[in-house]
């Protein structure tokens, strides 16, 4: 029991870490590399999740679509949908400076969440969408979990590889130049607005993919899953803790935050029964404390951005 159970639990955590890792990678493109303060991750996550669910789930009389397409179409659709939504938002909001952009994106995410919550014919309203297929979902419990875990990790690695290539290319250096000194980059003839929009849309597409991976894992989506706490701020903490500007940092942040989030409950359960219930709040506290400590003692994150040449690991981190 124990060993199989441990494996099942580890697989579950691995899958969630994979999904959050992809979200953090998407945010890294926007914030880490380009300096766009997107506080509306939940919105793009939601668009991806709902769109993939609508494309692949069986039809239901109370809402639109339900096309029962293969899951791959759902994933591609999720990326395309999130990118499509991000484009007009970016066109309008990216002209704001960072803190105003944050407010605008929070607003957009809330609008998306409320639309999904209330437009019954679109999203199933407060009850959400059920019956979403999971690849390898027909297998026995442990095997199905493991197969999906492997799939998520494969997607994570693929996204990581693609983003690494993209950031190592001149495009990545240009984005960092825009982030660090907008005027200088503009003076070099770079089209700032267009480039920032590219990064915003790319990051949103990656977040949409994470949403799709999530919905097929849970086989259902309800508006509670796109709560800003769990799908925006947790991702921010992951990226800041792991090290923004560094893709491996983003993934490491996802690993650490999720492990603490999930495993701290084992520790608090060792406390006497009278306080064990109250102690459930400790994990929220631990995440906050961790963020404070990181910001105080290591503001660049655990794995800081590699500056300049990709080989110079020992060079000091760039200041922000």
């Amino acid at each position: 029991m124990a060993s199989i159970g441990l494996i099942n639990y580890a697989t579950f955590m691995g899958t969630m870490i994979g999904i959050y890792g992809i979200l953090a990678l998407g945010l890294n493109v926007q914030w880490g590399v380009t300096g766009l303060f997107n506080a509306g991750i939940a919105g793009f996550f939601a668009v991806g999740a709902y769109l993939s669910a609508l494309l692949t789930a069986p039809p239901s009389p109370e809402r639109i679509m339900g096309w029962e397409l293969p899951v791959a179409f759902g994933w591609l659709g999720a990326m395309a949908g999130a990118a499509l939504i991000a484009w007009p938002i970016g066109r309008i909001c990216l002209r704001f400076r960072s803190d105003y952009l944050a407010i605008a994106t929070i607003g957009v995410a809330e609008v998306i969440r409320l639309v999904l919550r209330t437009e019954e014919s679109l999203s199933g309203g407060a009850r959400g969408i059920t019956g979403v297929p999971r690849p390898f979902g027909g297998f026995e419990y442990s095997l199905s979990q493991f197969a999906y875990f492997a799939l998520v990790i494969a997607v994570l690695l693929l996204v990581y590889w693609a983003l690494e290539r993209q950031l190592a290319a001149p495009w990545g250096r240009m984005m960092k130049a825009i982030r660090d000194n907008e005027q200088a980059a503009a003076a070099m003839g770079k089209d700032i607005a267009k480039r920032r929009l590219e990064a915003f849309v790319l990051g949103a597409a990656v977040m949409g993919l994470a949403g799709a991976l999530y919905v097929h894992f849970m086989r259902a989506i309800t508006p509670e899953a796109i709560d800003p706490m769990i799908s925006t701020f947790l991702v921010w903490i992951m990226l800041i803790l792991g090290g923004s500007g560094n893709n491996r940092g983003a993934i490491l942040g996802a690993v650490i935050v999720w492990l603490i989030w999930s495993m701290s409950e084992f520790v608090t359960d060792q406390l006497p029964a009278d306080v064990a219930t109250q102690a459930k709040y400790i994990r929220v506290f631990l995440i906050g404390l961790m963020l404070q400590l990181i910001l105080r003692f290591r503001p660049e994150g655990l794995l800081p951005e590699e500056s300049g040449q990709r080989t110079s690991y020992r060079s000091p981190p760039s200041s922000r």
């Binding site: 199989i4 579950f12 955590m13 899953a225 709560d227 799908s231 409950e265 084992f266």
Partner: peptide, 23 residues
């Protein structure tokens, strides 16, 4: 007792722990 947070991400995490680790 597990905290499910009224949220599917946390609830599935708690349920996975309950079923697999706690048995």
């Amino acid at each position: 007792v597990y905290d499910s947070g009224c949220n599917p991400q946390l609830a599935t995490d708690a349920a996975t722990k309950a079923v697999n680790i706690n048995g």
